[in-house]
Design a protein around this nucleic acid. Structure first.
Lengths: 295, 295
DNA sequence: TCCAAATGGTCCATGATATGGACCTTGTTC
DNA sequence: GAACAAGGTCCATATCATGGACCATTTGGA
């Protein structure tokens, strides 16, 4: 039903789209497709239709992914989902890309101070993905956004904050790319209103989702950047509408601003130490360093 | 220098080794190779020699991995390392494979109570990989084991605990497979002594590494299992020799045993709720469930 | 400043490899 | 128990990945 979006991620330049490793691209596409729905996994049929591949090809690639442990097949349901190796790889990658770890303290503070649920969101192409949900203690909570959930950029508070932090040309491109999905699956997020939201967000310094996704479930968010200016992600808070009146919005946005600034400071620090390590890498003979002998 | 171990992960059955997706297997092999050294990344040359592939092939596959965001190339050093997408994928996979999350509380307790550094280790084929290192407060600490470090099964306390928890046939196979690496890079971990270590570990209920990897750096470990009996991983503690005398060994092993039991309880709980969800999946119409419409 | 060596990166003819239509198998519905 | 649907596999074909040869850029030495 959604073949349209697949198949054509070659940049329309006729000769220059040949990657040189079609099957690898396809396999990694499947991986990301499966990652999108990690809750219960995807049945083969949906993988086939969702990827635009045909059954034998999809299955062959899945077998390769399973051999590597990145994908597992639930024996009961025969559904395919992310494997343990994907998890391990993530832990390994977290050494360099430790956004979540950096953000955890801030999220805990936010939820402790506000009693509301807080989120870390990052950009992933034209989508925003929720990396963590830190529960608040307030008894009425919204469950509109869970860890791992993905929505088009501009849909939801954190996602909108990220979108608004991007340069205009990116905004245009992203909205154009997402237009079919927005119209089909996100009533209330048509391109034009979204542009208005972005403008307001930029003006006022924080994003607001007034229950557009789930009625009465409001969100407020703020983006933060890497030292080089790239958008790194967004922090956001969610609560029911009665806890998001203008006065409290101001209060929450101040807290978000403080934590976002803290994140930017931490990232700046990380950038420095990383470059430091790189400079050293040449000289250092590595004192004890068990295992992994030189080659 | 280590071509030997590559190239032949087909199970020696002559005709039945053809995977049907050579290039995907190779690409995922590179991914795991790069994951092994996430600290500074690997230069192309080492990837070429480490994988047994040739330069153009390796490069082409790396480009595919980079297109997917799973690998990044440091612009300065031109080294290849795990990309942000690997990290994100890991977060997504953590929903199902949340061992680390389950273990964090226990690790914190262990380090708080003992002042020593504690570790979570899991098995990965014939190796053990350290998923987390929780610092202790005691001023003299060993840094023999860092998050992400990998050693052959049987090398180090956690690794040995896992090995000892495996059935004999696995032990034999793993030792045989690792023999070249052990002899070449791990003096003090020859196959025969290791078998003795395994026997002692089984008898006494916990593993001990008496400074074999780094002098004076001792470790003590204990494995825990999934409800179905499979070994899930190991918890371990590291300290200098003077803090690992027999009396304290007993004390520490009791703490480890308690935390390992707790882990097993948590895992059992997870298994139940997972099966529960599966059973429900068919009936439930998913109350609000924004986005991701049915197809 | 220049040259040499090493390492990173690319091209393109060739055939090994991935492809997908057709078919088989298993589980579910009426 | 027959019909349907979904999962899974086979295998001849031509497409796609392969790797030897080559170019580019960086490093370090004189």
């Amino acid at each position: 039903m959604d073949h349209l979006e697949e198949r054509l991620p070659q940049n329309s330049v006729p000769g220059a789209g040949l990657s040189g490793s079609q099957s690898v691209d396809r396999a990694l596409g499947l991986l990301s497709l499966i990652g999108r729905e990690p809750a219960e996994g995807l049945p083969l049929g949906e993988i086939v239709s969702g990827s635009g591949l045909n059954k034998p090809t999809a299955r062959r690639l899945l077998l390769a992914l399973m051999r590597a442990g990145l994908v597992e097949q639930e024996p009961q349901t025969r559904r395919y989902c992310l494997g343990e190796e994907a998890f391990v790889l993530g832990v390994l990658a977290a050494r360099r890309h430790g956004l979540l770890e950096l953000a955890m303290d801030g999220l805990r503070r936010l939820s402790a101070q506000t009693q509301d649920t807080s989120f870390l969101t990052v950009r992933r192409e034209n989508y925003a993905i929720c990396l963590h949900r830190e529960e608040g203690t307030y008894p009425v909570r919204t469950h509109a956004l869970q860890t791992g959930d993905q929505h088009p950029l501009g849909v939801g508070a954190g996602s909108l904050a990220i979108m608004a932090a991007l340069p205009d040309e990116d905004v245009d491109r992203i909205i154009a790319a997402n237009e079919p999905v927005l119209l089909a699956r996100y009533p209330g997020f048509a391109p034009e209103p979204m542009r208005a939201d972005i403008a307001v967000t930029r003006e006022r310094g924080f994003s607001l989702n007034p229950g557009r996704l789930v009625a009465s479930s409001w969100g407020i968010g703020r983006a933060f950047r890497y030292p080089d200016g790239r958008v790194a992600g967004a922090l956001s808070l969610a609560a029911i509408d009665s806890r998001m009146l203008p006065a409290r919005q101001a209060e929450l946005s101040a807290l978000l601003a403080r934590e976002a600034a803290r994140m930017e400071a931490l990232l700046a620090q990380m950038f420095v130490s990383k470059q430091g390590k790189e400079a050293m890498a040449a000289a250092a003979p590595a004192p004890i360093e068990t295992g992994r002998a030189a080659r």
